[in-house]
């Protein structure tokens, strides 16, 4: 497969994730958008790793990112839980106490 395809797919998924992050009201959905964006980046790494046949640095990097994503999900869910406890809702648009 050519690199082109990977990059386009990754960009599409990244944009989708970004849209989810920016648009969705449910905080859990926002977290999921972030996961999507991370994975879109992963696709890029995979696409580029074909130019490094011996070392597979891109694919190994993905493993790190996955671990970080798992940790991030744990922290993110904890934040969501606290957000819910505080505002009695999971709607992120309600958390506006910093409004000027």
């Amino acid at each position: 497969m050519v690199l082109h395809t990977y990059l386009l797919l990754a960009a599409a998924i990244f944009c989708l994730g970004l849209c989810v992050v920016l648009i969705k009201k449910n905080t859990v959905m926002v977290l999921m958008g972030i996961e999507l964006m991370l994975n879109a980046v992963n696709l890029n790494f995979i696409g580029f790793s074909q130019f490094d046949q011996n070392l597979m640095q891109g694919q190994f990097f993905i493993l790190f990112i996955l671990v970080i994503a798992a940790a991030e999900a744990a922290v993110g869910l904890a934040i969501v839980l606290n957000l819910y406890n505080h505002f009695k809702t999971a709607d992120i648009s309600e958390a506006k106490t910093l409004q000027g």
Binding site: V21, I23, I92, S93, A95, K96, T97, L98, G100
Partner: peptide, 11 residues
């Protein structure tokens, strides 16, 4: 003028 930008919403 600048206040309007400061919505407080994280998104």
């Amino acid at each position: 003028l600048f206040r309007k930008w400061q919505t407080g919403g994280i998104q």
